[in-house]
Amino acid sequence: MTDVRPRMLAGLYARNTRSVVARGMRVIARNNWLIIVTGFFEPVFYLFSMGVGLGALIGSVQYHGVDVPYAAYIAPALMAVSAMNGAVYDSTMNVFFKMHYAKLYQGMLSTSLGPLDIALGEIILALFRGLLYASGFMVVTTLMGLNLAWTAIFAIPAALIIAFGFAAFGMAITSFMKTFQHLDFVFFIMMPMFLLSATFFPIDVYPEPLQWVIMAMPLWHGVDMIRMLTTGIFEQAMIYHLLYFVIMIVVGVFFATRRLKALFLR
């Protein structure tokens, strides 16, 4: 063979990610519609209860000096949260279950597939799911008149970038997990991130040091990025948000690839 794959990938990749994706699509087409549908409704319910319900009491929120109706303020945040949740759920819980209980990867690794084919396939499937959720949510928010600018359409690729970053990291973290209990750590971090990352109110209500902590977290960047796109209110911070996720993706993919042997070949 005239292969010049880097040594790190020796025996890990067969260039057949496509078959893993095709398997996932086949399963979705035959059985898993329900899971897809429930995942779609989660942010929609939040939007109805908080956005519409609480929004009636709150009215509007100042965003970069502009008054934005409350529902339009939280809708982009819910989209970012849903991208994060879907990606993390798929790359931790789902991967862990398929690894240790359904033995799906064991079967795949009885073929000429390598761990990298499987990992990439799973990430692509997670992104596909993210694409469905994000598009569905966009339809709902558009119908409700919550997208204030045409740039809102870019919220869909933005959600995919967020999901990719979280999925790559999630998979790397899963490689360290030995039991289902370890997954609780992940949700222990995600919960406060969900509640505090300028999701439901601007972070300037906090003292400055705490604001810096929140701004160091990925979700805040995701929320603010999508919010700029749906409201059409752009600031220079947009560049940093994008950069944050580019770095997160690069580091996450590198880290996950390094951990593939630990994850799949014990």
């Binding site: 020796a10 025996g11 690794l109 009885s110 000429s112 597939l113 390598g114």
Partner: peptide
């Protein structure tokens, strides 16, 4: 076997 998983399993 350590370096050729996919080729061997084929």
């Amino acid at each position: 076997a350590n370096d050729n998983g996919p080729a061997i399993r084929a």
